[in-house]
Simulated scan of single mutants.
Amino acid sequence: MDLNSDLGEGFGTWRLGDDAAMLDIVSSANIACGFHAGDPRTLLETCERAVARGVVIGAQVGYRDLAGFGRRFIDYEPEELVADLIYQIGALDGLARAAGDRVLYVKPHGALYNTIVHHEQQAAAVVDAVRRYDPDLPVLGLPGSAFLLLAEDAGLRTVREAFADRGYNPDGTLVSRRSPGALLDDPAQVAERMVRLVTDRTLVAADGSTIKIEADSICVHGDSPGAVGMARAVHDGLVAAGVRINAFAGSGL
């Protein structure tokens, strides 16, 4: 099982999360691309740390929304969204190459991630951007989403993702951050949930029902309260259950 986290989300002198500590735990790093978070120096340094620790680099593309941290919907024209996403992948790929590796997968961020679960026009734009930049790049997304279905139809490799520290609705979508139960903060509970997810492919949804979740990668958000402790608990819980932690994407250059 792959473990991933959103990293490189500081900006200038403002720091968010403990990227160095997270890179000692996860196997894949979703690194911001400067549109929802991250400045060039922060992103380069994050890429360098990832390479030093053997962590695979992914481009976390998002809406052009620094003020809202990419968590506000933007009604893009498809052509504009495609261009913005290609720009972001290329920028991070350049920094990753300067650090000694390259971008090996793409994961949408925040509002874009949630929008393309159902919004087929924007989902198609993300697929088109990845395909035009590099059709060999895998894409990470929510199981059953319009995004992953369209990506598979386009010949892209799709990777199904689960969220360790987020609540789930009965339909398998994430509980809105504006609603109770959206964020989970008990490391032991979260680790137990993820062991169940990997071994039984089920989770308990916010309404108490049991739902089926198929996942190839687990995300622990780097900006969650106690993120490092949460990630360590998930990692150690999985290892104790006999699960091997490894990246879904291979080494780059």
Score class of each variant (00 low, 15 high):
residue 2 D to M: 06
residue 6 D to I: 12
residue 6 D to F: 06
residue 10 G to N: 06
residue 15 R to G: 00
residue 18 D to K: 06
residue 18 D to N: 13
residue 27 S to Q: 11
residue 33 C to T: 10
residue 35 F to W: 06
residue 39 D to M: 12
residue 39 D to C: 09
residue 44 L to R: 10
residue 55 V to G: 09
residue 56 V to F: 11
residue 57 I to G: 10
residue 61 V to A: 08
residue 62 G to Y: 01
residue 63 Y to K: 08
residue 65 D to K: 04
residue 72 R to E: 09
residue 77 E to M: 15
residue 81 L to S: 00
residue 82 V to E: 06
residue 83 A to G: 07
residue 83 A to P: 02
residue 83 A to F: 12
residue 84 D to P: 02
residue 90 G to Q: 12
residue 91 A to S: 15
residue 95 L to K: 08
residue 100 G to Y: 10
residue 103 V to G: 01
residue 106 V to R: 12
residue 112 L to H: 11
residue 122 Q to G: 06
residue 124 A to Y: 05
residue 124 A to M: 12
residue 124 A to I: 07
residue 140 L to Q: 08
residue 141 G to C: 10
residue 144 G to I: 04
residue 151 A to F: 10
residue 151 A to H: 14
residue 152 E to T: 12
residue 154 A to C: 03
residue 157 R to E: 13
residue 162 A to P: 07
residue 162 A to S: 14
residue 167 G to K: 11
residue 168 Y to H: 06
residue 181 G to L: 07
residue 186 D to V: 02
residue 198 V to K: 05
residue 202 T to C: 12
residue 209 S to P: 08
residue 212 K to R: 15
residue 213 I to A: 14
residue 215 A to Q: 03
residue 225 P to I: 10
residue 229 G to T: 02
residue 234 V to C: 00
residue 239 V to R: 04
residue 245 I to D: 04
residue 249 A to S: 13
residue 253 L to Q: 04
